[in-house]
Amino acid sequence: MGNNAGQEKVVTWLDGKILFMDIYAKQPNWVQCRIVLTYGGIWLMYGTEKKGIPLTAISSFGREIPKKQLGNVLDYVSVTYISEGKETTVAVTGISSQLKKLKKYLMFLKLHQKPVYILHPAKIGGVIQDSAQWEQGILNVSWTPGGTADKLVIQRRSGNVNIPLSNIELVQTENQKIGGKPQNIINIKYSYENNTYNTFVLAEIQNLLVEYINDHLQEQGVISRHVSGTTSGSSTGAGLDETDEEILVAIYSGISSLEVPSFMEGMDVDQVESIYDKLISYGLVELVRLRKDVQLTPKGRNIVNKKMQA
């Protein structure tokens, strides 16, 4: 990164406020700032200061700032970076749409075209695939208008792996032995063309990748902010009891929703349908069609009687 923002191609910028995280601070200390994102990093221009943060020095965008330091600010992007051997976090706030754009571009610049190791498919439909091997690849972040078909594409010698962000149901960090050595990897579970896949990724940027995916899952309402950390997808805290969760598991496993009442011991159709209503209202299942429950009218019974006499 050079020493002049004007010398670098600008990706986006905003006029907002920043504060440097200080766990000992007793009150908010936001300062007016112009934040400029270039292909090399972020420039912060405040007062008479001009501070550059190279992209390569940034390690996270997810660190939470203590509430007492935030004051009334709820919407912010935190940028954690290493400067002169010391980890520093700066929070940026401003117009929400501009903040979102800043974070999205920051993530893109940190993740796009970065090398990864990938194991795919690690699992299909929950079944571990012995034949899959770790391979080198390149991560590509693909955007579409409106973000509805955004995806991750991992290029590798044996073929591209497409992971549509809207199809991801879970991302979590796991510790696994690779070549006999314990490594933290990320496990991405998603559906693609009528199958559920687990793909394992090992990369320098993997923590940021988890943040990126979790941000998307939060935007889509798949997970709430408090459960996103390194693990997502937990139904605990969603107001579900064990029976509700069992019904979700049964449907996930391929039991037809019409078969669930006979499958769930001790439950009748009305009880199960009442749980479906709850699951629909929580956004956990969607209505495909209404079942028709019918009985014969006298006219219908008359036809049956005649048919049997014929």
Binding site: G125, G126, V127, I128, T196, N198, I255
Partner: peptide, 16 residues
């Protein structure tokens, strides 16, 4: 000789 993870999908278990 084989292993599946929960939650599983019926057809995949059957295939395994």
């Amino acid at each position: 000789r084989g292993y599946i993870t929960k939650p599983f999908q019926g057809p995949s278990v059957l295939a395994e």
